[in-house]
Design a protein around this nucleic acid. Sequence first.
DNA 1: CCCAAACTGTAAACCGGTTTACATTCTTAT
DNA 2: ATAAGAATGTAAACCGGTTTACAGTTTGGG
Lengths: 240, 240
Amino acid sequence: MSVIFNYGMPGLIALLPSALRTRLVALAVPLRYRDKQHIQSRGDRTQGLSIIQSGAVCFGKVDSEGRFMTAAVFEAGQCYGEFTLFAGLPRTHDGYAEGDTVISYVSKARFDQLLDEEPSLGRIYNSLLTIRMHYLLEWLDDLRRYPLKYRLGKTLLMMQAEAGTGRIDITQGALGEIMGVSRVAVAKVLADYRRRGFVRVVYGGLEIADEAALRDWLGTFAAVESIAPLVPLFPALGQG
Amino acid sequence: MSVIFNYGMPGLIALLPSALRTRLVALAVPLRYRDKQHIQSRGDRTQGLSIIQSGAVCFGKVDSEGRFMTAAVFEAGQCYGEFTLFAGLPRTHDGYAEGDTVISYVSKARFDQLLDEEPSLGRIYNSLLTIRMHYLLEWLDDLRRYPLKYRLGKTLLMMQAEAGTGRIDITQGALGEIMGVSRVAVAKVLADYRRRGFVRVVYGGLEIADEAALRDWLGTFAAVESIAPLVPLFPALGQG
DNA sequence: CCCAAACTGTAAACCGGTTTACATTCTTAT
DNA sequence: ATAAGAATGTAAACCGGTTTACAGTTTGGG
């Protein structure tokens, strides 16, 4: 049930015109993290913008029983830290690297200065935040309305579109974490998909065996409009 | 399960310095709607900013069975239409007036011009969108983690804080719609609260009988930090 | 004043997820 | 080659919600 901020959703990198991107990155310090390395804690007071150059960052919180619950995964091209930049909040989530990860970090002071010099940066941020809000609301709506056997199929189609290849390398446990459900629930749905001939499950991943059939079947739950990458939904954001 | 964009969350009106507020409202056309009157449809192409002066607007979508599902309720002081302003999207939700409602409507052309003349407006919008995102994520987190008997209590406390008085005038059906659950589920929780002495249920509403006890009991589920109005959470946004 | 409409209370059957448990299969390191 | 670890498959008991149903209560309009 965590939001994956990717799958065709444009990130800051994609939205910035290249000149501005160059200036912004020039202000940044590169930070390197190894897989699973801790990046930030809920409550931290560091203020600044982080841009993910490679790898991914997993955000979440520890619940009262001490278990980590994923809220969102941000992949390369996405940025985070707006809460500290625009609302003066402390970090609201714990974050760790998902795979070896490189981050460009821009301090709040430097970011604010660039924001003064380049009003277009503010505009772009308005767009970015709006897009995220839209994406979040769509995803939330799916969550309310549709059962796992719809949401998982939709997610798999998006993953495949993102990956390009037919093979999706992810364990059922990780899938469960992303969808916010247990491994068992994922396995049940995949068993059903397997019987229907939609997927082939292999050790440590799966393949979409019949994409068209899966897409059709998902269509019986809901219009599958938004399974396509999201970019075409944002006509205002042609190039970046 | 719909988001109520209020309960101490600052809206555009609260964030704008008064001079800018005056300028913005001067650009607006007032629109009046009666209770339950239709305001917009998903897919509409009108672009502009709407500021709720009084009343409230309920947003949602019709699902495949034709039932309306509420996604969010915006109250006086809040604005909407950012998706059309910043991302060029058509309206993503149906909207209708909840109570007699007056809206200040600013066309995209006029808004864009003001945005050019007043860079601070863009900054304020960055803050506003950030706050909303934060609020949404918090709320989503509650939704994942905690059962209705926690969420409903928290919502009632917020409603009471907002209303000021002890009496909360809302039917159980409407409560269910807000919480995104059935009326029966609400009634079950309220029956339990009644037995525990937290609330008194009356026709068409309820009263918090023992706020301290309710708050304590909710504290056994989770730290109740965010039940207080949200404004103090945003130190960067002192005055507006 | 009374009836219709709106609202509340509660029960029963159901459903989609959870947790726990355990057997099985696949991979990798030694 | 094999043992250990990781991942999958599946079943059972459980739980928090849903839907449906119906009876009882309150309110407001004619």
